[in-house]
Design a protein around this nucleic acid. Structure first.
Length: 163
DNA sequence: AGATTGATTGTTCCT
DNA sequence: AGGAACAATCAATCT
């Protein structure tokens, strides 16, 4: 039933689709207002964020490492629904399988179960991810704004204290 | 000791 | 239309 949750993207404009499906209490009005702005901001950020350090690090694997601390100001990609499910599933999984501590094994178990889950169950996590992305977009827009406004500011007094 | 990998799916962007 | 890449996490592995 229901159409496939994997509606692909287009979430930005119709992101409310999935959410409204099970939660029709979410009016979509103001969204259009910012839609324009968000789009512009996003594209701008993309250029910046897509600056792939080709020489810096190119993992032979697909998933490159996280090389931590690159741009703390840059909003990282929000976790997907699956990741939220992982966070929750991990707890139970560790309780049931205290022997297994590696995320690798858990990930496999999660992936397997994830596929077994129904749309209703998954939609719950999809909603979280959807909202998170909305916030992410906003954070990104602000990030760009700040960057364009004056990146020179950079007040990092709190950071260099403890050393 | 610090950096990196490995594994999962979802989302996103670019070509 | 599809592929490439990255998102969290933590133990294990490598240098």
């Amino acid at each position: 039933m229901a159409k496939k949750a994997t509606k692909s993207r287009k979430s930005r404009s119709s992101s409310t689709t999935a959410a409204s499906a099970y939660n029709p209490s979410t009016p979509s009005n103001e969204v259009k207002s910012s839609e324009k702005m968000k789009r512009s901001a996003q594209q701008s950020v993309v250029s910046e964020r897509e600056k792939r350090p080709k020489s810096k690090s190119r993992p032979k694997s697909k998933q490159k490492k996280k090389k931590t601390k690159i741009d703390a100001k840059m909003p990282k990609k929000p976790p997907t629904a699956f990741f939220y499910f992982l966070e929750d599933f991990r707890k139970e999984f560790q309780e049931q399988n205290p022997d297994i501590k590696s995320m690798r094994d858990i990930g496999k178990a999660c992936g397997e179960k994830w596929k077994l889950m129904t749309y209703e169950e998954k939609v719950k996590y999809y909603d979280i991810a959807t909202e998170k992305r909305a916030e992410f977009d906003r954070a990104m827009a602000e990030y760009i704004r700040r960057k364009e406004s004056g990146e020179d500011q950079e007040t990092e007094d709190d950071s260099e204290f403890d050393e």
